[in-house]
Nucleic acid binder design. Sequence first.
RNA 1: UGGGGUAUCGCCAAGCGGUAAGGCACUAGUUUUUGGUACUGGUAUUCGGGGGUUCGAAUCCCUCUACCCCAUCCA
Length: 749
Amino acid sequence: MSEHKDFLRTIVEKDLKAGKYEEVVTRFPPEPNGFPHIGHAKSIAINFGIARDYNGHCNLRMDDTNPTTEDTKYVEALKDAVEWLGFDWEGDVRFTSDYFSKLYDYAIELIKMGKAYVDSVGEEEMRELRGTVTEAGKRSKYAERSVEENLDLFERMKNGEFKEGEHILRAKIDMSAANMKMRDPLMYRIRHEHHFRAGDAWAIYPMYDFAHCLSDYIEGVTHSICTLEFENNRDIYNWVLDTLGLEPPHPYQHEFARLGINYTVMSKRKLLELVESGVVNGWDDPRLPTIAGYRRKGYTPESILNFCDSIGIAKANSMVDLAQLEFSIRDDLNKKVPRVMCVLDPLKVTLTNYEGTEELDASYYPEDVPKEGSRKLPFSKEIYIDRADFMEEPPKGYFRLTPEQPVRLKHAYIITCKEVIKDANGTIVEIKAEYHPDSKSGQDTSGIKVKSAIQWVDGKAHKEVEVRLYDRLFACEAPEDIEDINTDSLKVINNALVEPAVVNEKPDERFQFEREGYFYADPVDYTDEKPVFNKIVGLKDSYSKKKKSPKSESKAQVKKVQVDGEVVPMNEAEQALFDRYTNTLKLNGMVADILARDEKLSAFYDEALNELDSPVNLANIVANDVARELKEKDVNTLNFSAKQIAELVKMLDDETISSKIAKQVFEEMVKSGENPRDIVEAKGLIQISDLAVISPIIDEVIAKNPDNVEKFKAGNTKLLGFFVGQVLKATGGKANPQVVNQLVNEKLK
RNA sequence: UGGGGUAUCGCCAAGCGGUAAGGCACUAGUUUUUGGUACUGGUAUUCGGGGGUUCGAAUCCCUCUACCCCAUCCA
């Protein structure tokens, strides 16, 4: 129903509307040092999605500024992922390395402005000089080098005249900045390393903080969207663009929370570890949360996109339940995919009263899936069913075949068990059963009631296939490392039996194996001789859930006790002020506390008090509303004066205006600096307390909302607010809310 | 410990002073030749805690608490 926008789209819309940009340009800027995972999918969906929604465009840019970790095989994987998800990037794939010489020029400009310098301290010393989060850092002695010297050194760095680590180019910002990122951040480091695209042309490589903002600018990006951990970097982002004095429009950075899913790891480092240690079989192992992995497993791009859509975009760190992803793929495949029969754990059934063979018609799709298509099902005396679908001594609520309970073979006949044959160990090896000739699917006249229909395959006319059953890679919700791995994450069934049409007709590459789950013909290992199917996801299973679920543990959670920290005690002057406020002016403790502790506020309050002797109302508005404005501004930059606030409160005291209107007028004063009386007059905001005026309006509101009147009378007293709100709305906020409140209450009684 | 963020149901997430959306999960029922799907209902007297302002607060003010990020020549 509600077409709400995420906060990024809200920003984009506002910017577009304000004419800040003509066209929205975003970018997806991965570093090509690993395979993209589903977290990247979220970023792709956001960046390309926003560009699409607002008729802009999105670039694909490889952020390749670190030659030691990056590789061209990863850029291919990245391109594949974006394409597979169905997005087109604008023009060619971009590379930060394409901008190296432009970036170099910008750096020189900064040096010339005295805003960057070559530092030559060692790594260790630099760390020490940087200070800590609580202590300011110190600039190294090299910060004093002349522009000429810096220019010379920097050029020689570029030419490869120095060893790695010998020199570094830093921005000259502020070594005592509270934001550690602003303590003269590094812009260039020396790397005698072969770059997979730039070759050996460069001996210096730009750092992220220098390269990223400028690359965005060069490409005309308007909204530079990244994850939360870059919040602290935003200051440098703006600093570089601003101090270079680049012609607007500038791009601006906005951050959202990265995706976390339980039972999986998402960090590139950990993923790399899993791949390199051989715990999984490559980057596209279906147990990995990589896009290649999901793709190999059989997920559709639509399902991934729907998932990204369903989890929303916000700024709170969160951990999404894996069930949400699984829902997305089931939901997608349910509408699309043919149903087919496969027996994972075969148990032979001989139909003692059946002779010959026949072919049964069977639709590929259930009635609720509006798709056409069917196949023939060979049927004969010998068939296989799944071992789990027969029980000699069934528990209560078991719907399948038992010695007493017949069952339907899906698309075929009802059968009744006659004899159970076991081997020497007591394991069941065969069932002898009888079929009911008049119970054929679609023309059943037998009148036999069965509780379920099970899958089966013909004893001879079937295909043997390999089925790979995947489970979550990790055993715990928030896995840390390899210790937490689920040792049962892959089960291979070598000889599952599938009905012949699956392999012969190949009606699709994804199937629902009835009553089991969704499966995908493995794109790599599948051959006609040995078909291989990957389990994408199981069907929802309310039976086994009911069976084991021991009802979630004690729900009676004790409410967490929260200890209150200590409040800083007031100093003497503050205490004196506080006492005066509470004792002689009769302010309540909280308000007095707020005022007394803040010099700006108490001064403002005292000034207003000189104008008007209304200590309580004045205190309230100062402590609540004026305080908000004074949080970031200084008294003399405010648009309004203490005198005007006194005037406002005067009107409140007179009941010329209501407190609701007072807030509105205050907002106006903040913006325009006009006199409160003028505002009230100009907008006609004088309070209406006349019953003769208010009463008919209430009647109208009541008449318009019979449902809510009903609910109110039934005891939903919260609705009082609704009615008052409606009346106030109808009067432009001018009705006296106290009067309205009382009147509504009476009328609804 | 300085700075920057974030707290609304088991998990996501709307909400921006006037009736606490929605999805997942859970649950009860209806339909069903998939224990699937679909459909119908049930799930927050309450928004991290405590105060204050207001006729009215998840929303404004004060304060406390918890968690995340920042001291790589990574991005």
